[in-house]
C-alpha cells in the first residue's frame, strides 16, 4: 500500500516540522508560564522578526543563520520594552485587559507591516535552500535539519537559564508566587519584562531558522499562532521540554493525519489531540508551571 511506503519519510517530515513548531512555541510557553497571560501578539512578533531577517538578508546580505546574533538581542529588547511600557502598564494586571492589549499590539504590528512593506509575499534566496540531506529513509532539506538541531539547542539554553541562573531562580519564584516574590525583594515588573523579552527573543531565533524554507508577509503570524498555542497546552504551559515534545507530537500528528485523512481534514487531528489533552490532562504532558 502506498501509505505504508511513505510512512517513515512522512514521520521524519513530521518531526522536522514539529521542531519548527517547537521553536515558535518555546517563547510562548515561557511567557504563559511566568505571566499567565495568553499572548495574542506572539504571531505578529514572529512576523516582525521574519521581516527583520528578510531585510538583513536582502539589504545587507547577511545570511539568515548569521542574523541570529542580531535578531535575538533585538527581539529581546523589543519584548522587554513592550511588556514594561505597554502591556504591563495598560493591562492593570487584569487577564481580560492583557488579552485586549496583546490583541491591539497584534493589530498594530500587522497593519504597520502592511502599510510599510505592502502585502507582498517575500522569500529569500540562499545557496543551501535546495540542499538535501540523505537520512537513509528520506531526503530532508538541509535548512530543516538545521532547524531541528537548533530547536534542541534553544530548549537546552532556555532550560539552563531557568534552572541554573539567578535570573532563572527569580523567574521561577515570580511564576510560582508573585506576591511572595515581591515580598522577598524581587522586582516583579522587571522579571515579567525579562520573561517576556526572553520569550520574544526565541522568536528572533525561530525567524532566522524558518525563513530559508518559508516566506514572510504581514499575515504570516496567523500561520503559526494557533499551532503554537496547541503545542504549549500539549506540553504543559511553562514547560520547555513539553514544548519540544509537544511540537514533535503535533508535527507528526499533522503529517500522519494528512496521510490518513487527507491534508485538509487531517488538520483536525491536531485539534482533537488539543481537546483531549485539555479535558483529560489540562496541565499538559509535562506538567505546568516552571518548577
Amino acid at each position: 500500500m502506498l501509505e505504508l511506503t511513505i510512512l517513515l519519510p512522512a514521520l521524519i517530515n513530521g518531526l522536522t516540522l514539529g521542531a519548527v513548531y517547537a521553536l515558535v512555541a518555546l517563547g510562548l510557553t515561557l511567557i504563559y508560564g511566568v505571566l499567565h497571560i495568553i499572548n495574542f501578539a506572539h504571531g505578529s512578533l514572529l512576523m516582525a522578526a521574519l521581516y527583520g531577517v528578510f531585510f538583513l538578508n536582502t539589504g545587507l546580505g547577511i545570511d539568515p543563520y548569521a542574523a541570529i546574533v542580531v535578531m535575538v538581542p533585538a527581539l529581546f529588547a523589543a519584548g522587554y520594552v513592550l511588556q514594561r511600557s505597554v502591556i504591563g502598564k495598560a493591562s492593570h494586571g487584569k487577564d481580560q485587559n492583557v488579552l485586549l492589549v496583546t490583541l491591539g499590539i497584534a493589530i498594530v504590528i500587522e497593519n504597520l507591516a502592511l502599510a510599510l512593506f505592502s502585502a507582498d509575499t517575500r522569500t529569500i534566496d540562499t545557496p543551501y535552500a535546495f540542499e538535501m540531506v540523505d537520512l537513509g529513509i528520506a531526503f530532508v532539506p538541509l535548512p530543516r535539519v538545521i532547524a531541528f538541531i537548533a530547536a534542541l539547542a534553544v530548549t537546552a539554553v532556555l532550560w539552563f537559564i531557568i534552572a541554573r541562573t539567578d535570573l532563572g531562580r527569580a523567574i521561577r519564584a515570580v511564576a510560582k508566587e508573585r506576591q511572595g516574590a515581591r515580598l522577598v525583594g524581587i522586582d516583579v515588573d522587571h522579571i515579567f519584562a525579562m520573561s517576556f523579552g526572553i520569550g520574544t527573543a526565541c522568536l528572533g531565533a525561530a525567524a532566522c531558522l524558518l525563513l530559508p524554507t518559508f516566506y514572510v508577509s504581514p499575515g504570516v503570524g496567523h500561520v503559526f499562532v494557533l499551532i503554537a498555542f496547541t503545542v504549549v497546552v500539549l506540553g504543559g504551559m511553562g514547560s520547555f521540554v513539553g514544548a519540544l515534545v509537544g511540537g514533535f507530537i503535533i508535527g507528526v500528528t499533522e503529517s500522519l493525519g494528512g496521510l490518513l485523512l487527507g491534508e485538509s481534514l487531517g488538520q483536525i487531528g491536531i485539534f482533537l489531540i488539543f481537546i483531549a489533552i485539555l479535558l483529560l490532562r489540562p496541565t499538559g504532558l509535562f506538567g505546568s508551571r516552571l518548577s
Partner: peptide, 13 residues
C-alpha cells in the same frame, strides 16, 4: 489532494 490554507509544509504531498 485537498490542502488547507495555510499549509505550512508540502513535503508529504
Amino acid at each position: 489532494i485537498k490542502h488547507a490554507n495555510p499549509t505550512r509544509d508540502f513535503s508529504n504531498i
